[in-house]
Amino acid sequence: MDISKLTDAAELAKAIPHAQALGMSFVEIGQGHAIMQLPYDEKLIGDPQTGVIHGGAVFALMDTCAGAAVMSHPDAKGYTATIDLRVDYMRSATPGQILRTRADCYRYGRSVAFVRAVAYDEDEARPVAVANGAFVASKGE
């Protein structure tokens, strides 16, 4: 899939079934960066006692956003795949609040692209999670 042809961000999220199933959407796609959001939903709860959403949902949001940042890089041609991704959960996302994440592809190499991402809820001063990952880079076949 060529991300440059999917200028409509809403269209892109719809093209990823799992992103759509979770309720993710794009806020912004730039040149090597992306911002996505995930509204709070009871189906995403990981801790039934507190209502905090599952780490897996945060991971999925950050992975999707990081992949979009890679594909939006000016050097990128075609799809990417995650090689590895580490997420540090710094605090629980506040139940009921929308979760946003920004990912930046800070290096697009011959075969590997490097990304970092930050996730936060309505309190933007205190990140919920940070992520670092390596993705497959393809400069066109």
């Binding site: 992103a19 599952h54 780490g55 897996g56 949902a57 991971f59 992975d63 995650t82």
Partner: peptide, 12 residues
């Protein structure tokens, strides 16, 4: 499979 689905499965 979505990498996020795989990750969530592993974390669960």
């Amino acid at each position: 499979l979505h990498g996020g689905a795989t990750a969530a499965f592993l974390e669960i």
